[in-house]
């Protein structure tokens, strides 16, 4: 150990006195339920636990997260593997629902 002690860590790290800055870009606040109400009738991507994606227009959903989709494309590893005019997805398989277009 012939070196001088290392310099102290940079002092610009946020400390306890500084409140976290507001996040101006997150304009959509609300509960998960509000989000789901907002995406009904919109294009969504539904990912299942298996990794399969379903892209389509969300017709409706219920408390079990059972989902009815219209104009559905099934995507497996980036490839379209099936198309359905309507599709019912059993809620237990759902990993997430992603909005694929702007929601109000």
């Amino acid at each position: 150990m012939d070196e001088s002690p290392p310099p102290p860590p940079p002092d610009d790290a946020p400390d306890a006195q500084t409140p976290p800055p507001p996040q101006p870009h997150t304009t959509h606040t609300g509960s998960p339920t509000d989000f789901l109400k907002g995406v009904v009738g919109k294009k969504v991507i539904v990912r299942l636990n298996s990794g399969v994606d379903y892209r389509g227009v969300l017709s409706c959903l219920d408390g079990y997260m059972n989902i009815a989709l219209e104009q559905t494309e099934e995507h497996v590893e980036g490839n379209v593997t099936n198309r359905y005019g309507d599709a019912f997805i059993r809620g237990n398989n759902v990993l997430y629902i992603s909005a694929a277009e702007a929601i109000l």
Binding site: S59, C60, L61, D62, N66, E70, D86, F88, I89
Partner: peptide
């Protein structure tokens, strides 16, 4: 915007 075009209120309507 409920049920969009096809008059479906809940997912099970699709099955019914």
């Amino acid at each position: 915007m409920d049920g969009s075009s096809s008059g479906i209120q809940e997912p099970f309507d699709l099955i019914r």
